[in-house]
Simulated assay, not measured.
Amino acid sequence: MSRIDEDKEFVAIRIAVLTVSDTRTEQEDRSGDVLVARLTEAGHELADRKILRDERVEIANQLREWCANPDIDVVISTGGTGLTGRDVTVEAHRDVYEKEIDAFGTVFTIVSMQKIGTSAVQSRATGGVANGTYMFALPGSPGACKDAWDEILLKQLDYRHRPCNFVEILPRLDEHLRRK
């Protein structure tokens, strides 16, 4: 049973949002807007926000840049996780990951199945870690972003969430880089 431990203090983290789309502009980025609204409502800080085209190298370079920035704890991308030829966000994420969070995609599929049935098999949502930074790739629909945030990330990015959460191990993600 998971719960929020009210005896613990909330810890705000810094989150960057990347929208991957060949067609969306800032004014039309509903999925990015959903993520920004939800993360700020939860008490976290928007560290940066960008829109990039569906270009694997550009996406991977942006992910690397953000992962190298000590002022960014988490990167959430939206878009480019489907099956079409232009959907390369998952591959770009995997180009950067040091470790993949395998269960993230599985849990996202379970959540999606409750909302959209077997259409959930078309998503390749993924999560991973690089350079002490969490990265999550979500589908490009506002509904998928709401589901991922409300059902998974809201809880896992809350230090008070029990029995465990991503925030409490954040300081240890890059411990292998500090070994002598």
Rank of each mutant, 00 (worst) to 15 (best):
S112W: 00
P70T: 11
T78R: 08
R56K: 15
A103G: 14
V20P: 03
W66G: 11
T81S: 10
R30P: 00
S112I: 08
P70Y: 05
R64S: 08
H93Q: 11
I72T: 14
A42H: 11
V107S: 09
G79Q: 06
E9G: 12
T89C: 07
K8L: 15
A92F: 01
R38N: 13
C67H: 02
N69E: 12
T126I: 15
D22L: 09
E100M: 10
D7K: 15
R30Q: 13
G85F: 09
V121P: 07
A103D: 08
T19C: 11
Q62K: 13
R64L: 11
R53Y: 09
T19R: 04
T23I: 09
K115H: 14
T84W: 06
K115D: 04
W66S: 10
L52Y: 00
N69Y: 06
E45F: 13
G80I: 04
I76Q: 02
D102Q: 14
K50S: 13
V111P: 01
R64V: 02
S119R: 07
H44V: 12
R64E: 11
I15Q: 07
V34P: 02
N61S: 12
T109P: 06
C67P: 01
E6C: 07
M113T: 08
V17F: 05
E9H: 14
T84I: 09
T23W: 12
H93Y: 11
D48W: 02
R53D: 10
R64Y: 01
D33A: 15
E45L: 15
D87S: 07
I13C: 14
Q62Y: 01
E9F: 12
E55A: 12
R24S: 05
T89G: 07
D33P: 01
E58Y: 05
M113S: 01
G80S: 13
D29T: 03
V74G: 01
R86K: 12
I15W: 01
V57E: 00
E65M: 13
R49K: 10
I13D: 05
A68Y: 11
T78A: 11
V57R: 00
T84Q: 08
T81R: 05
S31E: 02
